[in-house]
Write a protein that binds this DNA or RNA. Structure first.
Lengths: 144, 144
DNA sequence: TGCACTTCAATAGCACGCTATGCAATGCTA
DNA sequence: TAGCATTGCATAGCGTGCTATTGAAGTGCA
């Protein structure tokens, strides 16, 4: 049984994800955004005023990871963190105007990266590919 | 045009790769290995005495990333770095006995992670999936 | 021969993933 | 209601990715 980069789904996934992230990073850097910030904004554009706990659940990262990402976003003027009125442990997260204005250009940049990555695939293959990824993700999540 | 985690290949790839890496990290931690170290060992098990430059080319990471990974591996007693005889700028990388002994258990751990992740896919789907990933990787590499 | 260019590697500094801890606030239960 | 467990978040410390910079060594050409 030979184990190599070319035949291991885990390595292919890692390599592919690094290429996606590199490409996205380059495309959104001019907007002053980093990949994890964009991922977080994607949720906040959909629904403002979430708590850190909400974001952790939706994005499937550890709480400490999200805390640090949010600190950088606050530092960069993308979000405000205001105390929750009911629960004084929690802080609700609100977008700044700057963050709202970045929605269109940032999602365009991400779409362009996806488009480039998938340029060689037919629409059917793309749909199949996404579906397979979702199934593999679900399988690993369930196994945890 | 709706852009969301569920429909973006980039996000799916990122999420999937994080799950793969988490799983692998847990499985090889008892061996005293971290994911990037394992990835590097995979090349060195195949061919010993490579230079940093060789590894950078084969694993598609930046030179600085590899330099740091190799430093940690040296610190952990996995490799030795000896000066090249011809080119005094370069240092060749050699496995220690400890690293050689880890080949079987570490590759087993990685295979188990792959197996778990792909448990829901038929062999045909797995082959197709890997093939699609290779095509997407090739496309992004060519676009760089 | 000498000087510029390239190449190999190390380092600094940052983003972002993780685990492990700790603190304050909240909730539950005896 | 007092005490304990749980929850929300921050922080420390580390691995691994990146870019940018530097120094030393090799290469090549006027």
């Amino acid at each position: 049984m030979e184990f190599s980069r070319e035949t291991s789904a885990g390595f292919l996934a890692n390599h592919m994800a690094r290429l996606f992230e590199r490409g996205l990073a380059r495309r959104i850097a001019p907007l002053g955004l980093a990949p994890a910030q964009f991922m977080t904004l994607l949720e906040l554009w959909r629904e403002d005023g979430l708590t850190q706990r909400d974001l952790v659940a939706r994005l499937d990262v550890e709480q400490a990871t999200m805390a640090n990402t949010l600190s950088r976003m606050e530092r960069d003027g993308l979000i405000l963190r205001r105390p929750d009125e009911q629960d004084r442990r929690a802080r609700r997260i609100y977008l700044t105007d700057r963050a709202r204005q970045l929605q269109a250009p940032a999602t365009q940049a991400a779409a362009a990266q996806n488009g480039q990555a998938l340029a060689d695939l037919t629409p059917e293959e793309t749909a199949l590919f996404n579906d397979l990824m979702r199934r593999v993700i679900a399988q690993m999540q369930q196994a945890e």
